[in-house]
Design a protein around this nucleic acid. Structure first.
Lengths: 231, 231
DNA sequence: ATAGATTAATGATGTTTGTCATATATAAAT
DNA sequence: ATTTATATATGACAAACATCATTAATCTAT
């Protein structure tokens, strides 16, 4: 569905730098791959990352533990997108925890290679810059939404966003399957509140559910809700 | 107080690129300066920026209008820091609005010069990359705080952060003076709620106020509040 | 210095959201 | 297949927060 491998940063810089280093060649041949099972911690807050992960297949969630014990989900990363680049670029410990939402295949790119390329490969660096610029915009938008919209509206928006990012199966159910707790940790609310709102959306015939599976029925009204329009 | 001009990105790249272009020289001589008065809009959401602003003196706030009519403040920018780089780098319209909190002097750097340097000046590009990486971390932290901590705790944290960023005068009052509405737009709450919480903090002898001026008295307890510890 | 406008403060009240308790459904393990 | 654990659902209630109304204080302009 969402096969963005042509956007994968690995391809970008293998193509651009014409394989000057052995390491680079090694990676482009796909030799350093890492697989994770659903629930595996890819890296944790405070970890010193030895490289970045390019997701070949699967979905990871990035989250951060709050002092109140809740684990706020910041964003999801999937096919062709990259995990851990901020920490490696800034040469700082990871600010977020990365956990596999599904079974996951990734390509591991050692830190050294990244840092070498930062020095020598302008196209690569510019690509990263665009990446961070985009992430920053998204983060700012999340700040506005989360602080100013009520829970129900945030859930509506989250559902649309998840459907849009990861697609639906043949029956129209969203591919990504999250626990109610995960959803509540995206919108920043109590799990019970999240469940209640989903029930409401169900009663209002905007969504359907079947276990963890969620199907969006009335995209229009959900959209309006997401934009903060309540009736 | 907070004279970070040695960190100013202008100095960074004038120093590093040894003034190869006339434009560059012109800027480093401080010829293209722009001043703003308190309340002036430097740029607005959706504007196509023709360059970035390096703040020489003063403070600007970056905010974004929510669908509920509230103007969420995302961050402040002051001496030696840069405004508008994300939009120029990404070559996108501004995602945020920038308004002068004080009278403000800035150095305007035309877009063309930035983009040229992105192609040719690795050190400059790396500097920007570090910048964005840092901003992204800060934005992620804000997401966690704003979604998981109660208003009072967020206000405590905000006050400490503002004092820390902009310093205090000889009497110990914070240099930056914001309206109650501005503070409420940082923490994402109603103005009245914000005022009530400030009154509470005053009763608890954690802060003192005199008009818009705020002085922090008990830094320790405020710090604990900011960390989410409520007694 | 005074009038008018804006901002701050506080009370009363209603809404939203969180917490705790408990029931039901679903998944996992033996 | 049956038990055990875990996730989902819902009710009852409490806490946090928003909204509206009103008064007090501060700022601005003449």
């Amino acid at each position: 569905m969402n096969n963005k491998c042509e956007k994968c940063i690995v391809k970008k810089f293998t193509g651009l730098q014409a394989l000057t280093s052995d390491q680079l060649k090694c990676i482009s041949d796909g030799k350093i791959t890492r697989t994770f099972k659903k629930g595996d911690v890819i890296f944790d807050e405070g970890d010193h990352l030895k490289g970045i992960y390019c997701v070949r297949f699967g979905i990871a969630k990035l989250s951060k533990l709050s002092t109140n014990g809740k684990d706020q989900i910041i964003k999801f990363v999937s096919n062709g997108e990259v995990l851990g680049q901020r920490s490696v670029i800034a040469q700082e410990p990871a600010n977020l925890r990365a956990v596999a939402v599904n079974d996951m295949d990734s390509c591991f790119i050692p830190k050294k290679l990244i840092l070498d390329n930062l020095q020598n490969n302008t196209s690569f660096t510019l690509e990263l810059l665009q990446n961070l610029a985009h992430e920053l915009k998204e983060a700012d938008d999340v700040i506005v939404n989360i602080s100013q919209k009520p829970v129900k509206n945030r859930i509506a928006e989250t559902l649309l966003h998840l459907e849009n990012s990861f697609g639906v199966d043949s029956e129209g159910f969203m591919i990504i399957q999250l626990s109610r707790e995960d959803i509540s940790n995206i919108v920043g609310t109590a799990t019970e509140s999240c469940i209640r709102m989903l029930s409401e959306l169900k009663k209002e015939k905007l969504i359907e559910t079947s276990g963890k599976r969620i199907k969006i029925i009335n995209r229009n009204i959900l959209q309006k809700l997401g934009e903060g329009i309540n009736n």
